[in-house]
Design a protein around this nucleic acid. Structure first.
Length: 243
DNA sequence: TCATTAACTGAGG
DNA sequence: CCTCAGTTAATGA
């Protein structure tokens, strides 16, 4: 995947908020980015590390997570192409969680100093990054509700619906479904359940004719019941321009 | 390695 | 008594 299509995806996500100029877009598209390949399940930035660059996902799936003393990992958020999961490291220098790949990934790195200069030169771009970070925290609130209160099948459905909405923004959803190439172990870590139970929940949703997950591909079988189960309210994603 | 499934267990309603 | 979910273990892709 050429990295300019990912710059375009980044711009597409950011420009939902009004006010971006062609010059702003040109500045983003001109950012120097160092592209590197990562295998699956590889740390990008670790908890406690001091980051000097931000990570733009070009291809693949990443997650932010924390690991407790017993070794169990809680996935806190999933990230897809066009996103910068560690934007906050620009201001919070020491990482308070891990960022790692879930699948093989192509990642682009943007120097902190470069981004800081862009913030000063282009206040509208700075506002867009700020807005992006606020949406990120809105997604965390939803994630807490999901893992803390919903039954496991609804947790899975909710994560799937949210992922679909975000993939739709970058043109990665078609009429047959979308990719969610995570192992059941990873899905369990995202939902706060064991891999065995994740398997049971996936099977249950398939048997009930609601949604199918096979070989990393999600196929919705019954859109109405899927949305009903997910208890999904799209407002927290703040994707429709508020007037 | 990952997915699948059964059998068993216990918590909690 | 029923549902949910963790554990263990066996088996298949």
């Amino acid at each position: 995947m050429p990295s300019d299509t990912i710059r375009a995806a980044l711009v597409k996500r950011l420009r939902i908020s009004a006010g971006i100029s062609d010059e702003d877009v040109r500045e983003i598209e001109a950012l120097p980015i160092a592209v590197r390949q990562y295998p699956a399940e590889t740390p990008v930035v670790r908890d406690g590390e001091r980051a000097t660059e931000c990570c733009l996902i070009v291809e693949g799936f990443c997650a932010r997570s924390k690991t407790i003393a017993s070794g169990k990992r809680q996935i806190l958020s999933l990230h897809i192409a066009g996103e910068i999961p560690d934007l906050m490291s620009l201001f919070l220098h020491v990482m308070d969680h891990d960022l790692s790949t879930l699948t093989p990934c192509t990642l682009g790195f943007i120097n902190h100093e470069t981004l800081r200069k862009l913030h000063h030169r282009r206040p509208v771009v700075a506002e867009m990054f700020w807005r992006d970070t606020l949406i990120d925290s809105a997604m965390f609130r939803e994630w807490i509700v999901n893992v803390g209160q919903r039954p496991a099948p609804a947790r899975l459905a909710h994560v799937m619906v949210e992922l679909r909405e975000r993939l739709r923004l970058i043109g990665r959803v078609d009429d047959t479904g979308f990719d969610m190439p995570l192992t059941q172990e990873q899905i369990g870590e995202a939902l706060g359940i064991t891999a065995v139970h994740a398997n049971r929940v996936i099977r249950q949703l398939r048997e009930e004719g609601i949604v199918e997950l096979q070989r990393g591909r999600v196929t919705v079988l019954d859109e109405f019941r899927f949305l009903e189960l997910a208890d999904f309210d799209h407002r927290y994603l703040h994707q429709s321009p508020t007037l």
